[in-house]
Nucleic acid binder design. Sequence first.
DNA 1: AAAAAATGCATGTTTAAACATATATTTTTA
DNA 2: TAAAAATATATGTTTAAACATGCATTTTTT
Lengths: 149, 149
Amino acid sequence: MTLEEEIKQSKFRNVQQKAILNILFTSNWIQNKQKEFFEPFGITGQQYNILRILRGQHPNLISGAEIKSRMLDKNSDVSRLLDRLIGKNLVSKSQCPNDKRASDILITESGLSLLEKLDSSINNLDTKLNSLSEEEANQLSTLLDKSRD
Amino acid sequence: MTLEEEIKQSKFRNVQQKAILNILFTSNWIQNKQKEFFEPFGITGQQYNILRILRGQHPNLISGAEIKSRMLDKNSDVSRLLDRLIGKNLVSKSQCPNDKRASDILITESGLSLLEKLDSSINNLDTKLNSLSEEEANQLSTLLDKSRD
DNA sequence: AAAAAATGCATGTTTAAACATATATTTTTA
DNA sequence: TAAAAATATATGTTTAAACATGCATTTTTT
């Protein structure tokens, strides 16, 4: 289904504006699919985003600020997102000895094994979320990078 | 700045996944710019989305359900979004005589004149939000449509 | 070294999103 | 036509996002 059909709109100010609406619409569409996917595992897309960052870093420690700088949504309330993950025992936190303001965040064994469970089906999600060829996917990324210039 | 730089990540499961992250990141980026733009006018992006739909329809009446079907975010809480717009006197609501369940929504004069004020600078926003050529913008829309197949 | 600025994080508060449920009405089905 | 299903909206409740502020610590400036 094209954007025009999805939002029942046939006229746009210009093709650039149409592309913007399409980005916003597609982002919502992706997030809805992700929500369905993560729901049985008891986490949200944002929480998954943090767990993935922590695994990428594991077994190194990482601060909250560093996590924030790597997130997709730069406005995230990392402090309370981490609280929720700690509450689920997926993440642990301790004071950083070198910088007493900062905290050392680490993914727990339980968090790692949750991610492993997800790994097996995450490829299904990728293909469900994006049916482009390699070349097309690369083109898309290039255009998105360029559109933010 | 490329996605890799923006989220400090150089490896992705596959190019499709990278494209997905880029869509989500770019959508957040756009929404942040829009928020800045709309802030002085006292409305949010979603509220603007509704006002635009209502102007497109004006002077015809339109139901809440029909508005919802045209919105970018299909999960929108249209009922309370309309309440807020009515509170600002930008929109009016009455019971639909043909279908007593439904409501007839209409943009007010005040709503129309707000949109007119926005029109003059909205093109600046478009160009700020998307620096692609016509051809590239079309390509981008095509790829996004295709990625949702 | 003292003062000023910046940083990392927590937390209070307001606002909105998410989710479920309720109600009235209309449409469909049997 | 009576019963069942679907529709349009409102609203209660829980949860999270948004925004601001505060505090301790570190870094920079003078």
